[in-house]
Amino acid sequence: MLLPGSGSATLEGYDVVKDFRKIRDILGYMPGKFSLYQDLTVEENLRFFAGIFKTTPEANYDLVKEIYSQIEPFKTRRAGKLSGGMKQKLALSCALIHKPEVLILDEPTTGVDAVSRKEFWDMLDRLKRKGITILVSTPYMDEAMRCDRVALIQAGKIMDINTPEGIIKNFSSRLWSVRTNDTYELLLDLRRFKATRSAFLFGQHIHLTLVDNAGSEPEIRKFLEDCGHQSVEIEETRPTIEDCFMDLMKG
């Protein structure tokens, strides 16, 4: 849909510039913004997208059955009148109806609640098992753990590509999880601690790394107690993928 300034890319061996028509046949794309026809019904949208690819909903029904059956009771409803979760399911059904080999999903779960997000990823797992390659973008770091490999892109550059485990393994700092009875004051104080390299909110804890990995638990504790914090808990913890991404983003 967009031409590169330079460089090249292929999908299933097809060049994104020269063979774009072929790519459209093997690619399913779900844009970040809901882009189906709001004035068409659920069923009409699905039939329309199948028609564009010279197929019918019936021909590839197997592939979308599991997803589409959840919105089938509303098949005569206009797409514009669906709830957010149902729109998302319809959009995925339409992206799949021509049986693509590759599925590209642009932030499919942004603004989606935790339950629906989990169900959506269970669905992606099943599509993967059917042999469909999936490229998906997300701002939710917990979803990164459900990918085979992840790439972190920032300011137009890829910072790292690896398996989730590989990214976690490359986290080089010792990571401390610190907690007191006032998390926000704790954050402000840790920012003033001279040995602090980074301090981030993590639920009711602060995740802390120190400059050159220097500093020990008693030193952190003493600093915090001098600041007036009570019931200080400090323990070393394993980084999550979110820690790793934030570390990479800071450069």
């Binding site: 603004g111 770091m141 926000y184 909110l201 979110e242 983003m249 800071k250």
Partner: peptide
């Protein structure tokens, strides 16, 4: 209403620091 939807993890945290400051 969903002020941090689609926002990166560092910006989300900065946003919550603003929220805490405001509450204070």
């Amino acid at each position: 209403d969903e002020p941090t939807g689609g926002v990166d993890p560092i910006t989300r945290r900065q946003f919550w620091e603003m929220i805490h400051e405001t509450a204070k």
